[in-house]
């Protein structure tokens, strides 16, 4: 594959990661700690909202963030044709310095 395409893949990956980490920060450190006091004025049933974020909401959000990332990356891997072609052989010969035939430098060769 063209090195520029790989650069573009990596940049997209970084953009996803930064965006998701921003959300990660906002739900936990933001809603759960920094603004907890203010959010506690609002209620969610018997919960004060800041307290709920700190002890429940942030955790639900974490789970969702990981699955969103998994989904985005699986799509991105295929779009840039860098995904692994399953099923893999269970083991690889132990040859130490053997160049990886599937490294981005020789993307056309098949998976072992």
């Amino acid at each position: 594959m063209h090195p520029n395409a790989l650069k573009a893949y990596w940049r997209r990956n970084l953009r996803y990661v930064l965006l998701l980490l921003l959300l990660w920060f906002l739900v936990s450190f933001g809603c759960g700690i920094l603004w907890a006091e203010e959010l506690n004025a609002l209620r969610l049933g018997g919960f004060k909202l800041g307290f709920w974020f700190a002890q429940q909401g942030a955790i639900y959000a974490f789970v969702m963030l990981i699955f969103v990332y998994v989904g985005l990356m699986n799509r991105l891997d295929r779009a840039y044709n860098v995904h692994e072609q399953a099923p893999l052989a269970p083991d690889r010969p132990a040859g130490k310095k053997r160049p990886d035939p599937n490294s981005p430098q020789s993307p056309s060769s098949p998976t072992p």
Binding site: L20, Q55, I59, L65, I66, M73
Partner: peptide
């Protein structure tokens, strides 16, 4: 409320792990 440090602290790390390290 302060117990939240353990709740968020011991779960939030998995986001870092999945996004930054594991793959």
């Amino acid at each position: 409320y302060d117990g939240a440090v353990y709740l968020m602290g011991w779960t939030g790390g998995y986001v870092l792990l999945a996004l930054l390290l594991a793959p």
